[in-house]
Computed example of a mutant assay.
Amino acid sequence: MKDSTVVFALSASHDLAQEICDILEIPLGKCTVHHFADGEILVELGESVRGKDVFFVQSTNRPVNDNLMELLIGIDACKRASARSINCVIPYFGYARQDRKAKPRQPISSKLVATMLERAGANRVITMDLHAAQIQGYFDIPADDINTLTLISEYLKSKPGLNLEDVVVVSPDHGGTVRARRLADRLGAPVAIIDKRRPKPNVAVAMNLLGDVDGKVAVVIDDMVDTAGTLTSGINMLYEKGAREVIAACAHGVLSGPAIERLKNSKLTEFIVTNTIDQSENSKLYNEMTVLSVAPLAAAAIEAVELNESLSTALNDAVTGEFVHKVCQSDENQA
């Protein structure tokens, strides 16, 4: 595997790619990304990929279009350099919220992105916590979506001072009920649901609470937090309903615009997020942020693909193995 596998980092996920390579015990591939004054992008490979399995690690978060173009251009470079296979590890898949026609004459942009990746030459895509599971079906190549709930549940189980008998897992809306139930099952906790309305994009108003959080530690779980308007609205309601403490957790910390200020001004005890999107700057601004690394999961997925092993078994081993426990322990010490 070590001789036939190359992992490249593009601009959005360099630190994560390095973590993955450290786990796999292979060097990070040599790759340079140039952004020119006119906005054009050039991706240059610094080593041969002929006959090798290439893995690009690149989230397509802000700036979404630049990061997406880097990935497409990198794929093209590998295809023209005779790579045996080209695999895209996209921890955060941009345009995932445009997964259907919500109104007449709207595009389905996530399908367009899937088509672009395929046409560029990608042979496989690995994502994490897609906003909509059906996006996997937009690809005609293998597409694996990795769930990060295992990381979050392991962290909460090992969190000092947290009695799981006092925990209620809260879904911020009806659409996230399945996600909340999965986390609740892992923690052995009940579920509550916030009933909300969304008058316009990035604006949500909490209306009611289905369930009981009185005297409990409410753990709000979502796939992403963007402007944090939905989250902070829900936090206020939970405290009004008698919650003793509120913890929030998500896979993707998009954290656009006023998000950090809203989180800082909220009564959140802790904000748990993964590094599918790099949080090195945000974590400096917000002390209550705990960042869990998805590198063990990504490394396990790459190894399973290369060795033709069961992906589900590899991911389970990664979660219960030493890498995840080291990550959790490190974050506890920082807290």
Results as ranks from 00 to 15, higher is better:
Ile86Ala: 11
Asp173Gly: 05
Glu44Trp: 03
Gly74Ile: 11
Ile23Ala: 04
Thr148Lys: 06
Gln329Glu: 14
Asp3Met: 08
Pro201Tyr: 12
Phe323Glu: 12
Leu10Thr: 06
Phe271Lys: 07
Lys159Ala: 02
Thr269Cys: 01
Cys31Phe: 09
Asp145His: 02
Arg244Lys: 14
Thr274Trp: 13
Thr115Glu: 12
Ile86Arg: 08
Val33Gly: 04
Lys2Met: 02
Pro160Asn: 08
Ile146Met: 07
Gly29Val: 09
Ser171Phe: 04
Lys241Leu: 01
Gly51Gln: 10
Val191Glu: 09
Thr290Ala: 07
Val219Thr: 01
Tyr92Cys: 02
Asp173Phe: 01
Phe93Trp: 00
Phe8His: 02
Glu306Tyr: 04
Tyr239Ser: 11
Ser85Trp: 03
Gly234Asn: 01
Ser158Trp: 02
Thr5Val: 13
Ala132Leu: 07
Cys250Asp: 12
His35Leu: 12
Gly242Tyr: 05
Lys2Leu: 10
Val291Lys: 06
Gly229Thr: 04
Asn236Trp: 01
His252Ala: 04
Pro258Arg: 08
Glu47Gly: 11
Lys196Pro: 03
Leu307Ala: 08
Asp15Cys: 01
Leu10Ile: 06
Gly46Lys: 08
Val327Ala: 12
Val305Met: 09
Gly253Ala: 15
Arg179Asp: 01
Val169Phe: 00
Ala243Ser: 14
Glu25Tyr: 00
Leu45Trp: 13
Gly161Cys: 08
Thr5Met: 09
Ser13Met: 05
Gln18Tyr: 00
Gly253Tyr: 10
Asn61Pro: 03
Lys79Ala: 15
Asn316Ser: 13
Ile235Ser: 00
Asp15Ser: 11
Glu47Trp: 11
Thr276Ser: 15
Ile272Glu: 02
Ala114Gln: 09
Leu16Thr: 05
Ser59Tyr: 07
Val43Arg: 07
Leu307Ser: 14
Ala184Ile: 05
Leu255Asp: 10
Gly74Val: 14
